[in-house]
Write a protein that binds this DNA or RNA. Structure first.
Length: 573
RNA sequence: GCCCUCGUAGCUCAGGGGAUAGAGCAACGGUUUCCUAAACCGUGGGUCGCAGGUUCGAAUCCUGCCGGGGGCACCA
């Protein structure tokens, strides 16, 4: 019960409801003119035919706020400005300090959540385009997991389809040992491109590849073994990237397209039985309601291609059915780039029409924009090639190491390397999560690795400074200390700290992590003002104990908040 | 052609229908016998793409235009 905003909201909602005779939003917001303002009187004015100031006064008279609010004033056209009691803030903060969960309640109704993210392609390098899905999806997973939901990470790996004919033939040409070596060291692009070149240039190879696809689809044992080899070696490499990136995906989360192979025929049959399929140009198609393409013609999802093979639409539909019917998931999150918005909406609509996506289950596209280079175009290397994710991560750590070595030469080599890893990887994750995910963002090493400003490193630095106080003082926090909020800086810090539960709840619902990032920046700013104005170790007795508690709580909130974003908080840096 | 999305300070970005639109970076000017100056304080800087509309009130909601990006059947 440390969520200040909901407390105020609940109390005022009751008062406004009493005035209005029906439920009414009190419109509680943080305010420049007070701690909070409640603007609920204004929208009611017309409906009730009364002056808004009069309504505000009436609501205030009925509101039970004595234990929380020191002063409440009506201002302007009918805003209620609320200044909170210091002892109320101190009490809430004490409760937060004593709570392992920092005032954030576990979900009252945990649900099974599928998070479909990362989805690299077998025998293809992970590149910058996989970064956002992986980073955002992992933040989703960490956040919902912390709130107590039953999380299923679904790594929908591209491990099936016609390219595997040529890939397997290329593997045979190379020899299994050599091929496995090439794949395991991560030269996936080289492997794929070599196969592609042969496919385009050599008709004999191309024909072998086509026959190999047939063998693969008909379940030929030798072919399947070779296919499995490609998949296994690629997955090993993906896990190395995940380890480098510090995400929670494991080998157990690989659930590629091939996983649904046996479900495709039944899914298509079921759709057909429901009357949802039509033949068009020789293909079996579903035409979900509400989607038109060129010429206003309905746009199909192709579930079965003219050649008899299944399309990705069939796989996506099989996955939905499996997730809601077998796994009993009620929240399906697709962390996929914005361009696929339409396709996903069509899949969801088809699933609804088939009865596989019904309340309380719902599917949400957690979309995101592109990563742009300095030229404003999709991030690419000098030569115009895609940027390998592994190389991007290595460069981030290398650059961070140089900066850490320069800023703090006293760190021993091991610590420096560890800090560089946390800072470099954290920087990449932070830029990705700190602006509205639906927008594109511009990639800039200089900006993201700056140690001041809106960066991960600044938050990590704030955390490290706090930890330094405890080290320097040779003390630990007394989490049961009496909280004193005598100075404006202490009071302002308290207000920020108490905002944490609401921000986490918002992030869990909207999956807009930039609001959490922005909150942490605000908290770090409030802490720095406190740090400058309120000596901690030099203070005495209860003041010192209270300030140590504030330091401890701030460090815990920053570390937890960063943790939800998948960013580590070093003890020193 | 249709659909989606974005357009806010020089740059990168926040802004859940509410008061005088905010941060960070960059620029300029300050602050250190003090727990990490990797910091802090101050100053300047905006017809919120344009035009209508809804509303007591619009950067926010609606419509139309302009501009950038993306998508529109057998790749996923």
């Amino acid at each position: 019960m440390t969520d200040l905003e909901s407390l105020l909201n609940d109390r005022l909602a009751a008062a406004f409801a009493a005035v209005a005779g029906e439920p009414a939003d009190p419109v509680v917001r943080r305010s420049q003119h007070a701690d909070f303002q409640a603007d609920g009187a204004l929208p009611l004015a017309r409906r009730l035919g009364r002056a808004p100031r009069d309504i505000a006064a009436d609501a205030l008279g009925r509101a039970d706020l004595a234990d929380l609010v020191a002063t409440a004033e009506i201002s302007g056209p009918g805003f209620i400005n609320l200044k909170l009691r210091g002892d109320a803030l101190a009490g809430l903060l004490a409760a937060m300090s004593g709570d392992e969960r920092l005032g954030v309640p576990a979900a009252s109704a945990p649900e099974t959540v599928i998070i479909d993210y990362s989805h690299p392609n077998v025998a293809k390098e992970m590149h910058a385009g996989h970064l956002r899905s992986t980073v955002i999806g992992d933040a989703v997973a960490r956040t919902l997991d912390w709130l107590g939901h039953d999380i299923r990470r679904a790594n929908h790996v591209g491990d099936w389809g016609t390219p595997f004919g040529m890939l397997i033939e290329h593997l045979l040409d190379l020899g299994e040992t050599e091929a496995a070596h090439e794949l395991s060291v991560g030269d996936l692009n080289g492997f794929y491109q070599a196969a592609r070149v042969k496919f385009d240039a050599d008709p004999v190879f191309a024909e072998r590849s086509r026959l190999r696809v047939v063998a693969l689809q008909s379940g030929d044992e030798t072919t399947l073994r070779l296919w499995r080899l490609l998949v296994d070696e690629s997955e090993k490499y993906f896990l190395a990237v995940y380890d480098k990136l510090g995400v929670t995906l494991t080998a157990a989360d690989f659930c590629g397209e091939s996983y649904y192979n046996d479900m495709l025929a039944p899914v298509v049959d079921t759709l057909d039985g429901l009357g949802l399929l039509q033949e068009s140009d020789g293909a079996q198609c579903a035409f979900p309601q509400g989607f038109a393409g060129r010429d206003g013609q309905p746009t199909p999802i192709i579930v079965r291609k003219r050649d008899g093979g299944y399309g990705y639409g069939a796989t996506d539909l099989a996955a939905i059915r499996y997730r809601t019917q077998e796994l009993k998931a009620t929240r399906l999150l697709y962390v996929v780039g914005s361009p696929q918005s339409r396709h996903l909406e069509m899949v969801y609509q088809t699933a609804r029409e088939a009865g596989w996506l019904a309340e309380p289950a719902r599917a949400v596209h957690v979309g995101f924009g592109q990563v742009l280079g300095a030229d404003g175009k999709k991030l690419a290397s000098r030569a115009g090639q895609t940027v390998k994710l592994m190389e991007l991560l290595e460069e981030a750590v290398t650059r961070a190491a140089a900066i850490v070595a320069e800023k703090n030469p006293e760190l021993d080599a091991d610590t420096r390397a560890e800090v560089a890893r946390m800072v470099g990887i954290g920087a990449i994750k932070y830029v990705d999560l700190s602006s509205d995910r639906i927008k594109d963002y511009t990639f800039s090493w200089e900006r993201m690795l700056s140690f001041s400003g809106d960066t991960g490193a600044y938050l990590q630095y704030t955390h490290a400074r706090i930890k330094s106080i405890f080290r320097r003082g040779g003390v630990g926090p007394d989490r049961a200390a009496v909280v004193l909020l005598d100075s404006p800086a202490e009071r302002a810090l308290a207000m920020e700290l108490l905002g944490f539960p609401a921000v986490v709840a918002d992030a869990a619902q909207t999956l807009q992590f930039h609001r959490l990032a922005g909150y942490l920046q605000g908290l770090a700013g409030a802490y720095t003002a406190f740090y400058d104005n309120c000596p901690v170790l030099k203070a005495d007795g209860p003041t010192r104990a209270s300030r140590l508690l504030l330091c401890d709580l701030t460090a815990r909130v920053i570390a937890q908040g960063l943790g939800l974003l998948g960013i580590e908080a070093p003890e020193r840096m």
